Computed example of a mutant assay.
Amino acid sequence: MSKRIAGPEIERLIQLLAKVPGLGPRSARRAALHLIKKKEQLLGPLASAMGEALDKVRVCSACGNVDTSDPCIICSDPRRDGSTLIVVEDVSDLWALERASAMNVRYHVLGGTLSPLDGVGPDQLNIRSLVDRVAMGDVKEVILAVNATVEGQTTAHYLTDQLSGFEVKVTRLAHGVPVGGELDYLDEGTLTAALRSRTLF
């Protein structure tokens, strides 16, 4: 049994921080100590911001993004191309694509990938709502921006089957050599994907 090093309030703060992805018990202790030392500058404003987020953050009923409005700021933007839909696994993937500012389109968040071993089937993901969006006829292309994992590819194949009855082009992200990457540092799977997805120069 580990020895307690602080009062229950601080211990609870450490335990909650340790549940944040990327923070283990040691990092959580360091973060908690830093927040406590900077109580006025950090801990108070953070608590306030978290309270506001708890009250105001919603899941967009159209795409699955998180925002303070429903529909979210992306879905309600009339300047976006509604004929192209990028399908992602999680909100973090949507945010990553938005940071890249590569396309001014709309999104659909699945909420994960198919994983029968973990009990995640089609009913646990936002697949039905994706099919419903495509069935409305406004979407001309669906870009499957799922991860290049076994689960991601399984999900992509399943979605392709589900959308095969509609007049919609289904594409996926290219896989291969990253910009600025050196061949010597890439794994065999990435190199194979790059060779298979080669394009004219």
Score class of each variant (00 low, 15 high):
8 P>Y: 09
9 E>F: 14
10 I>D: 09
10 I>F: 14
15 Q>H: 13
20 V>N: 08
21 P>S: 08
23 L>M: 14
28 A>H: 04
31 A>V: 15
33 L>S: 12
33 L>Q: 13
34 H>E: 06
35 L>A: 06
35 L>E: 03
36 I>K: 03
37 K>E: 15
38 K>T: 03
41 Q>V: 14
44 G>V: 14
47 A>W: 02
48 S>D: 14
51 G>T: 11
52 E>W: 07
54 L>H: 12
56 K>M: 11
58 R>A: 04
61 S>K: 12
63 C>E: 01
63 C>I: 07
69 S>H: 13
69 S>T: 15
71 P>L: 10
71 P>S: 09
72 C>K: 07
73 I>R: 15
75 C>S: 08
76 S>K: 15
77 D>K: 11
78 P>V: 06
83 S>M: 02
83 S>G: 06
87 V>R: 06
89 E>K: 13
90 D>S: 14
92 S>F: 12
96 A>L: 11
96 A>C: 13
97 L>A: 08
97 L>S: 10
98 E>Q: 13
101 S>F: 09
103 M>A: 15
106 R>T: 10
108 H>T: 04
110 L>S: 03
114 L>C: 07
117 L>Q: 11
117 L>K: 12
119 G>E: 03
120 V>R: 06
121 G>T: 05
127 I>W: 02
128 R>G: 03
130 L>F: 01
133 R>Y: 00
133 R>W: 00
135 A>E: 02
136 M>H: 00
137 G>R: 00
138 D>G: 07
142 V>N: 01
143 I>C: 01
144 L>E: 03
144 L>K: 07
144 L>W: 09
147 N>P: 05
148 A>E: 11
151 E>P: 03
152 G>V: 07
152 G>W: 06
154 T>W: 04
154 T>K: 04
156 A>N: 07
157 H>L: 15
159 L>T: 00
159 L>C: 01
161 D>G: 15
161 D>S: 15
165 G>H: 05
165 G>A: 05
165 G>C: 03
166 F>L: 00
169 K>S: 08
171 T>A: 13
173 L>W: 11
174 A>T: 14
178 P>Y: 10
180 G>I: 09
186 L>E: 05
188 E>I: 08
193 A>M: 10
198 R>Y: 06
198 R>L: 09
